[in-house]
Design a protein around this nucleic acid. Structure first.
Lengths: 204, 204, 204, 204
DNA sequence: AATGAATGAGTCTTCATTCAT
DNA sequence: AATGAATGAAGACTCATTCAT
């Protein structure tokens, strides 16, 4: 149980940090407030994390680790590259809708600098992009995709996705994010794949 | 000449701030360093700006004010909505490529919080979005556009654009940004408009 | 002992502040110097006091809290209003003589402004005046006192007292303050009460 | 006229300083605000005064110089020492009532430190005390006065006077100060001179 | 004499981090 | 492992004073 308590503490700190970093921002959140919110002493944070910066990184990794699997899993259950792409976007929006705090960090802090953070964040968000690029490459190979510049397209897709979520957060999550699933999918599918209503009609 | 000196100082401070905010980030940039880099005394900043925060806002507005007109102008010179959209994206990339410092701020700081900043930034970036939404609405009316959710599409488009620039910045501006003009235009045009010569031909 | 250490620090800061505020004045005393003089780090002050201003207030309250009881107690031990008045003045001078630093603050800072301070100081010195007015009222009721305007007389009495101490402080405490006890008592007693053995005898 | 303008400026600066020092306090009043209120440029102050401190001194001296003569004159017009004392107090209160701003400085700033100021202030208020001591000595010689310690009594008298005015200022000058003339005179006369209503009756 | 933009030393305060218990 | 009092470096901002015009 003592062991459990320990794990408990690390988790509680990460959870508190995620909440607070999301509410304010990295610089406006003090380690003191995180400790208080996590119900631990100020010094305790430094037993689990070397620095405040490392805590932020841990928050990211926790977020990614927790969701990336679900994402990859969901994607792989689909058969066609096209469906995979759709599933990726839909699941992504669902994930964000369920974790507004994490979403906030993912989006806002993603663009803060300070060397170390930047580096780690790049590495972390790399995971996301990897999935995207994988699918796009698959699409390209399958011929369902126009001959796009994969990294560029992946970046655009990611940007479109991010901004959709960002707007939702900026509007204080006052509407359903998953309702935009269709709009986003359509935008992306048309932007990347050679599909359109006309073609669908043609298929019939 | 005295007049010039004065204007000069304000400008130099803004320029120095733009450079430094872009290199590091708002919190890692001290007013002392800005002053030094601008070649003025520490206190001088506070003759022209009420606070560090207000200086950041000024940097934004300077950036927008300087470019928004060129953007709007270039767009309006085009005839068809489709060409307008293309021109918007192309010009946007050109602008960013020519002002990497401003670009950095525009992209990174855009997502920082602190009430006041957020408010002003929203107002500022509103200008950008207004242009986009205008064009999209025009496209919709002209029928060259699928029946999209204009604000949502606009947000996605903006995100795709931003991320394209962000990647470029993250790669230390080591390649030509405008070279991606074609990729971006195509992505957006397909994503939003119901056109593409190849497909049209294919349908027939 | 840990408990003692803590209390010790707060006390040491207050003592150091009392000393320095007395020597220079509020604005010429830096928090850095107070910390140094108290043998603590600069930041430690802010663990115990929210601001420099609040520290000043604490110094006052410490002073009043420490002495007011002794004063009130001594006064109440006396039987006649006249003796109470004398005891008040005598004890007051003794108190000041024993705590020159506190005396300095009590006298000099008492007349500084800045809203918050003013308010608290008014409240604090109110305690002093309350005792005085109480006694005067008692005197009036007992008929040993001319028909004076109590608040006005109290104010004059307080002023006479204060200035006596102030002069002593201005002369660098180079003479015995309590030696003036007689002069002050006589001044006040004649000024307020209708008595003096000599005169009474003379009248007859 | 140019000459007059100059004199005008010095005066305007002193007047503005008197007003502002009275409203806030020395440290809360910036030279910038004084300049603005006086309708001159910031640098102009330093043509007439070597420093802010020297300006404060000038304000005092202006105040004293302007009133001391009236005071001394009024006092000398009286015949008996007792009347002189009364006139001194009455005139003093009138002066204060007519110049609340100056009064405020006279009272509050009088007790601020910073070496130089203290020194000059001592010298300045010396003038006041000189008049008082003069009269008291005269009283003593004439036998209308108990055998008091003249400097001590003078100090008490001054304190009683000051505090009476201070209370008035603290109550925002909301009542008539000169109305207290009687109370103050009586307090002082009884406190120092061997006079009282009973005695007056006895004399007859 | 007058201006007012510019200066830069000086201050309060915050907060990540440490360490004795 | 946990605590939380203590640290002290760092930073935004103010303002008396100067000086080129």
């Amino acid at each position: 149980m003592a062991r459990k308590r320990v794990g408990n503490k690390r988790e509680r700190i990460i959870a508190a940090a995620a909440k607070l970093f999301g509410e304010k921002d990295y610089h406006d959140t003090t380690t003191a407030k995180i400790a208080e919110s996590a119900g631990v002493a100020a010094g305790t944070i430094y037993i689990y994390f070397r620095s405040k910066e490392e805590l932020l990184v841990a928050v990211f990794e926790e977020f990614l680790g927790r969701h990336m699997d679900r994402l990859r899993e969901g994607v792989e259950r689909e058969k066609t590259p096209r469906d995979k792409l759709m599933r990726l976007l839909t699941l992504g929006l669902e994930l964000m809708e369920d974790n507004p705090d994490s979403a906030r960090i993912f989006l806002s802090q993603l663009r803060q600098s300070t060397k170390m953070i930047t580096v780690v964040v790049k590495r972390s968000s790399r995971a996301y992009k990897d999935i995207i690029e994988e699918i796009l490459t698959e699409c390209a190979r399958a011929g369902v995709c126009r001959d796009v510049n994969v990294p560029a397209a992946s970046s655009m897709l990611f940007g479109a996705f991010q901004n959709t979520v960002l707007d939702w957060v900026a509007h204080e999550c006052s509407y359903s994010l998953t309702d935009l699933s269709g709009d986003l999918s359509e935008f992306v599918l048309h932007g990347i794949c050679c599909e359109s209503t006309e073609e669908k009609g043609a298929v019939q």
